[in-house]
Simulated assay, not measured.
Amino acid sequence: MHIRAKNELDAFIGIDLGGTKISAVLLDRGGHIVRRNERPTYAERGVDAVIRQITDGIDSLFSGNGPSFHPSIMGIGVATAGVLDSANGIVKFAANLRWKEVALGPFLSARYRCPVRLYNDANAAAFGEWQMGAGIGTDNCLYVTVSTGIGCGIISGGRLITGVEDSAGELGHISIDSNGPRCSCGNYGCLERYCSGTAIARIASEQVRLMKVDAALISKLAGNDPEAVTALTVAKAAELQDPLALRLLREAGTALGIGIVSVIHLLNPEVVIIGGGAANIGEPLLEPMRAVVRERGISSMTANVKMVWSALGKDAGMIGAAALIMGE
Rank of each mutant, 00 (worst) to 15 (best):
H2L: 14
A5M: 01
I13W: 06
T20N: 08
I22L: 01
I22Q: 02
L27Q: 03
H32D: 06
I33C: 02
G57M: 02
S60W: 11
L61I: 02
G66T: 04
S72A: 11
I76Y: 06
A87Q: 14
G89A: 10
V91E: 09
W99N: 11
L104P: 06
F107G: 00
F107C: 00
R111A: 15
Y112F: 15
Y112M: 10
R113N: 15
R113G: 04
C114M: 10
P115I: 11
A126N: 09
L142Q: 09
V146C: 06
S147C: 10
G151N: 14
C152F: 03
E165D: 13
D166H: 14
D166K: 04
D177I: 12
D177E: 13
P181G: 07
R182N: 02
G189L: 11
C190W: 09
E192N: 05
C195Y: 06
G197S: 11
I200K: 00
I200L: 01
L210K: 09
K212R: 15
A215R: 02
P226Y: 01
P226N: 06
E227L: 13
T233R: 07
T233D: 05
A238I: 09
E239R: 05
L244E: 03
A245Q: 12
R250H: 13
R250K: 14
I260K: 02
I264F: 09
L286W: 06
M289S: 03
V293H: 02
R294S: 11
S299T: 08
T302G: 03
V308R: 12
W309M: 15
G317S: 15
G317N: 15
A323S: 14
I325K: 04
G327M: 09
